[in-house]
Design a protein around this nucleic acid. Structure first.
Lengths: 110, 110
DNA sequence: CGTGTAAGGAATTCTGACACG
DNA sequence: CGTGTAAGGAATTCTGACACG
């Protein structure tokens, strides 16, 4: 699941409450919760149900805020996200295929 | 004031509430507040007065917890910290002196 | 010395809804 | 569609103090 290195541990750790995210991004709680409903961000929850965000989420929210200002809609943002995700997936697939060819090559030598 | 690079920005940003710090460190609120009173950690405060910690603070607390388990006292920990700080200060001073000598050298050449 | 706890108050967060558009 | 707001409840955090040792 970890698509990032150990080094980025703090970037993805979900530890920030919504109030702090508001301060960091300048967005309202309402907006932040709405972007979650539109599947643009994915905070974790405490047992009680309080949202926890990562610095990565905060960066994403800044990005969202800019694009919303430019008139983009959440549905478009969502599509854009999925494109990037499938690109990442494609790269993984390619890597896997290349490894497969190498394995086939070495298997022939055996 | 920044003794760290841009890269560590998220390491020093004070964004974590005490409850989350408890979860991350396994310490009680009482303990965490006490170590602050003993000047071992320095959280920031929101306008209202709520404490905010950084990942760096969390790391320090883990360190403190280990040493307390080993029977060390907060006063000793404090001394240890100050030694490290003064060592950092000494290094800065040395650097400054070396630069001074170099400047003196180049000034002579002029 | 270091930590647990009960006390009371103030701020935080949550959800679902009404509103405008 | 995206966001503001009032509503009511539940969990969070704060401080100062009593307690044990």
């Amino acid at each position: 699941m970890a698509t990032h290195s150990q080094k980025d541990a703090y970037l993805y750790k979900k530890v920030i409450t919504i109030g702090t995210v508001c301060e960091l991004t300048g967005l309202s709680e309402r907006q932040i919760r709405y972007y979650e409903k539109r599947k643009l961000i994915f905070p974790e929850r405490t047992e009680r149900g309080n949202r926890k965000y990562s610095f990565s989420d905060v960066e994403m929210l800044m990005d969202i805020a800019n694009k919303m200002e430019d008139g983009m809609q959440t549905s478009e943002l969502r599509k854009e996200m999925q494109k990037k995700e499938s690109k990442r997936y494609d790269n993984k697939l390619k890597e896997r295929m290349i490894r497969g060819q190498l394995n086939a090559y070495f298997n022939k030598r055996d």
